[in-house]
């Protein structure tokens, strides 16, 4: 099988620091692949190595089955990159910026004109064609950044935290756009610190930590990798200490927390945990207020896999 991106045994060192430690990754064509990890985990280093911007000590990188090298000009034509930092010329207008970057990939003028128009419409900047970047708001600037990265219709697009410092409306528009690009055939590699975004659009996710790939799979597959399957929170006042042992004895409960107001029960497995808990509360004649059940999110998965300690 030919993968859009295939990384094998990649090792990258910054002097004594091992940024990528025999890292492996396979991204299938047509996927929206999420690359997650705490700061310093090696996400950006991985992308820069794949793009041949960074040298590496060991390993192999292939894009669409071909070895990726600094002079792989034909492969570069198929790749688009939307970086975290906006990369446009302040002196050129929106239209000129998109045309300039598109022109680095597409030399046919007529085709380029069509591509530029489509890219500008795609990000909804039609009304701002003649504006220079300094006149654009943060959200519009991000959209221009995306237009510059995707105007040449690449088959593989890297999005490196494209929604940082963007308002919810613009963020929604950007995420919809990424899904559309994917529907039109592009393979997308997406990095972000916003777990809900990744959960919303990514078909598969890899979680990196300390330069290694610590978990990979669909959102559901990742959720199944962690112990917690459900958390039920009950508003209850004056719970007697001896009740804790009874609660811990309930089926699938592995952790009980109580702060005098809220009772939190963490479950590892089970399908009818809420029903069993309510039966217990009624049976014990305990008065309670609101009750709600939460299934684990990607954020829970992320924190459980990478730990809760602060990173740089």
């Amino acid at each position: 099988m030919v993968y859009a991106v295939e990384v094998a045994n990649l090792v990258k060192r910054y002097r004594e620091l091992v940024a990528l430690d025999h890292f492996n990754l396979q991204i299938k064509e047509g996927e929206i692949f999420g690359l997650l990890g705490p700061n310093g985990s090696g996400k950006t280093t991985t992308i820069n190595c794949i793009l041949s911007l960074l040298s590496y000590d060991k390993g192999e990188i292939r894009v669409f089955g071909q070895e990726m090298r600094p002079d792989s000009y034909e492969l570069r034509r198929e790749i688009g990159v939307v970086m975290q930092n906006v990369a446009v010329f302040d002196e050129l207008t929106v239209e000129e910026n998109v045309d300039y970057f598109c022109g680095l990939y597409v030399s046919d003028k007529a085709l380029r004109k069509t591509y530029v128009n489509e890219a500008i419409e795609f990000v909804g900047l039609q009304e701002f064609r003649k504006f220079r970047p300094k006149k654009l708001s943060g959200g519009l600037l991000r959209r221009l950044n995306i237009a510059c990265g995707i105007a040449h219709k690449p088959k593989l697009i890297f999005f490196d935290e494209p929604t940082v410092a963007v308002d919810p409306q613009s963020r929604n528009k950007i995420l919809e756009g990424i899904e559309r690009l994917n529907q039109e055939g592009a393979t997308v590699v997406y990095t972000s610190h916003y777990m809900e975004e990744v959960e919303q659009i990514c078909t598969r996710i890899a979680i990196m930590d300390n330069g290694r790939n610590v978990a990979i799979g669909t959102v559901e597959e990742l959720k199944r990798m962690i112990k917690n399957t459900e958390q039920i929170t009950v508003e209850i006042i004056g719970l007697e200490p001896e009740r804790r042992a009874e609660l811990e004895a309930l089926t699938h409960v592995y952790q009980v927390d109580y702060d005098g107001k809220l009772l939190k029960l963490s479950y590892a497995g089970g399908n009818h945990n809420l029903e069993a808990l309510l039966d217990y509360l009624h049976g014990a004649n305990l008065c309670y207020g609101s009750v709600h059940s939460e299934l684990p999110t990607l954020n829970d998965v992320f924190l459980e896999i990478t730990g809760k300690g602060l990173r740089d």
Partner: peptide
């Protein structure tokens, strides 16, 4: 230059010589 900013990086990533 890619090591001096996003603009250099984007230009270096293109297939232009």
């Amino acid at each position: 230059q890619a090591n001096l900013g996003a603009l250099g990086m984007r230009r270096q990533l293109s297939p232009a010589g």
